[in-house]
Amino acid sequence: MKEGNRALSLYTLLVFIFLLGPLAIISVTSFEPGTILKFPPEGFSLRWYKNIFEVSMFMETFKTSVIVSMLGNLLALLLGVPAAYALSRFSFRGRDTLNALFLSPVLIPGIVLGFTLLRYLIVVYGLPIYAGLLIGHTVIMLPFIIRVIASSLANFDFAVEEAAQSLGAGRLYTFYKIVLPNIRSGIMAAILIAFLESFNNVDISVFMTGPGVSTLPIQMLTYVQNYFDPTIAAISVILMVLTAALMFIIERLMGFAYFTKR
């Protein structure tokens, strides 16, 4: 028994090294004072962190990424909250089909989705790139918004809603005063998860960016094609820290158990 436990501990440790090792290496190399990314680093310097803020493209694309993710998030919420509500609250013909349809952007390879959006939104309908980017990101966020809010609504006893109505409340009033306050943490988690999904997205954005409009991950991709200095490692570290902070908040709000059930 003791033997088995030790073997299991070792195995777990190896898995963790496999998962976290690359992240640790990137983190360490980001402090390299020299101009070439290497491991182990030859000293300690914050030079490349400073460089991020000096390259204007990083700052601009960061701004674009944040705006697109936030606006797209808002649009996805406007579409997703009513959809999640309808899917949880009512049983109707075609509900399962609709459910599958809403989740389909997760199942289709991002490249296919991105190319299709480019082919139609930009080429056929001639939408501006910025609008295309926004729509693309709304589409990839929608499944996460619907999924998380629907799972939050699954725990909601809709008799509570009927109780409010029997006491004289209209449908909309009931939704705002009774339903929303009870799924608030679910909505917060949905926003954060969708934001991460959108902010880190490459495969859709790569089709939806063009002259003058780009997102941070795309800019990073372009950068590593041309430069091999540790700036990219420094950005990665900052993004990792931000992501970890968001995940921590989500965990606090709902717990990860929320997403693994069902």
């Binding site: 006893d157 008799a159 509570v160 009927e162 109780a163 409010a164 009774i178 009870n182």
Partner: peptide, 8 residues
Amino acid sequence: FQSYALFP
């Protein structure tokens, strides 16, 4: 209601 349906 059977489930009481109080506003939680």
